[in-house]
Simulated assay, not measured.
Amino acid sequence: MTNVDVWRSRCRAGLFALYATAGVLHVTFPAPFLAITPLWVPSAPDVVLLTGFCEIAGAIGLFVPSLRKYAGIALALYAVLVFPANIKHAFDSLSAPDVSPWQWLYHGVRLPLQPFVVWLALFAGDAVTWPVQKTSAEL
């Protein structure tokens, strides 16, 4: 197993934990997700339920070799598509009268990390290697 393979495996495990947990929460406790869903999203309860199932399926797919690349691409696309909800969540939270420094910290870190989450899903799904390169000893 190469160094890149070790990192991909670790990323898969981390994304599995993240997306499987989020998916289960979307399905079992949809209220917080409905609160951050933009108003222009049609049938918001159905969309939240569907996104939960997609997160769970994507998380599992990362561990099925024949589905891994598709799961990584799907999770990356998912991270792009839910970004409007992340922005709405930040605006709603940070415009509240009693906003805490922790909310500023959470959103200040969360929003700029979204491109990294997209890349991480692609990397974990074997869709990209960049910028990680195998050494000549690993080839």
Rank of each mutant, 00 (worst) to 15 (best):
L39Y: 05
V24T: 13
I73F: 07
H26Q: 09
A35T: 11
D5R: 10
G14F: 12
S66T: 14
E55L: 04
L81Y: 10
I60G: 01
Y78K: 06
A31C: 06
A17N: 07
T28E: 02
P84S: 10
L18R: 01
T28I: 01
I56K: 09
V6Q: 03
A71F: 02
C11H: 00
L34V: 08
F83H: 12
L67K: 03
W40M: 09
R8A: 07
L67P: 00
L18P: 02
G58F: 00
T51H: 01
P42T: 06
L81W: 14
V47P: 03
L50W: 01
F63M: 03
L67M: 11
F29I: 12
F33N: 13
K69G: 04
A31Q: 14
A35H: 13
L15T: 03
T21I: 02
S66N: 06
A76W: 10
P45Q: 05
F29V: 14
I73P: 01
T51Y: 00
T51G: 00
F33I: 13
L49K: 07
W7Q: 10
A76G: 12
V27N: 12
F53D: 02
G72R: 05
L75R: 02
P32G: 10
S43K: 11
L25S: 11
L67H: 02
F63S: 09
E55Y: 04
A76P: 08
I60W: 01
G58M: 03
T21A: 06
A59K: 04
V27A: 08
L25V: 08
P30W: 04
S9M: 12
A17I: 14
D46L: 11
L15S: 00
G23A: 11
R12I: 04
V80I: 15
Y78C: 01
I36R: 10
T21L: 09
